[in-house]
Design a protein around this nucleic acid. Structure first.
Lengths: 159, 159
DNA sequence: CTTGACCCTGTAGCGGCTACAGGCCCTAGG
DNA sequence: CCTAGGGCCTGTAGCCGCTACAGGGTCAAG
């Protein structure tokens, strides 16, 4: 009486591209539902789990936090979402990304200026070091306040 | 026999713009040296501490990790740095930032495409949700491998 | 003498994993 | 049959850079 499409956690991991330990972690924090277990206690997944996990993975790659993903999943699970709700979440997220890009560009400009000051010779006075020692409030201030900001940087995690 | 310019941790915090707890944390992890103590055990800081802490703060704002900062400080402390060494660190850092900007831009494009598909009407089939459920490997892959990558995102932390 | 602001140490938590340790299970080969 | 190896299990601790307590001591003003 075994499922046709029963996947072990290892197979699910391969097919979804999500680490085994991460899958278990998602289960623990309630992002993935607890799957059935085999007689010996192994997790047995179905096609729906793969779908959901792919959703989570893709959303993570797009920089949604696990909390935001929980929100999206709640909408999806309840079949109660309107496209507008989802779009709002998406656009909010876009704004965040835009802001981060702007911050990084400003950062880049400052660093380039610093590096340009640098002769490259050995010198007891290095322009970069001098700039860093400057006590005045630096030109690089984040553009605005930020909520917990856990997210979009995860796109950049090492694979 | 008290120092002329003895600063309490609170005063140091105000003058440097670094949180009190963060200052103590920096001491614990060896980024800041342990200061003298008053008779009652209070930390007493001097002008050199303020300088160093400002250096750390500014470097953090420029996205250097505490580990990189330790490296910079080691160079500075030993007076053994060449400008070229410092510049190299800076340019490495710039490359990282550049890469993150590129990643975020790609991200932005994908999200915009998704949002554009969205009619905004209530609908059982939302284009964004569909896109997220898509099992195929998404178009948003980070540009390259990354080392620990703890850093430049901190620029974006809430103030 | 009391109030309140400051300071101390130490520990736990955040997000989103990752990496163990110390087991059990299952299959293939000898 | 036994053994070796892979996979799976749970649970805990670690990563980064803080932040937020809890539970105390100290100090200056009123």
């Amino acid at each position: 009486m075994k499922q046709k499409d029963g996947l072990s956690i290892g197979e699910l991991s391969k097919q979804s591209g999500v680490n085994i330990e991460t899958i278990r972690y998602y289960e623990k924090i309630g992002v993935m539902p607890a799957p059935d277990r085999s007689a010996s206690g192994y997790r047995v997944y179905g096609a729906d789990h793969l779908k959901r996990l792919s959703f989570v993975r893709r959303s993570r790659q797009l920089g949604f936090s696990l909390d935001e993903i929980r929100g999206l999943l709640r909408l999806v699970d309840g079949h109660a979402y309107t496209c507008a709700q989802v779009r709002e979440l998406t656009l909010d997220h876009l704004t965040e990304i835009q802001r981060k890009i702007a911050d990084l560009k400003r950062l880049k400009r400052v660093m380039e200026e610093m590096a340009a000051q640098c002769s490259g010779e050995r010198a007891p006075e290095c322009a970069v070091i001098d700039a860093l020692f400057d006590t005045r409030p630096p030109a690089v201030e984040p553009s605005g306040r930020q909520p917990p900001m856990p997210t979009a940087t995860s796109v950049m995690r090492r694979r």
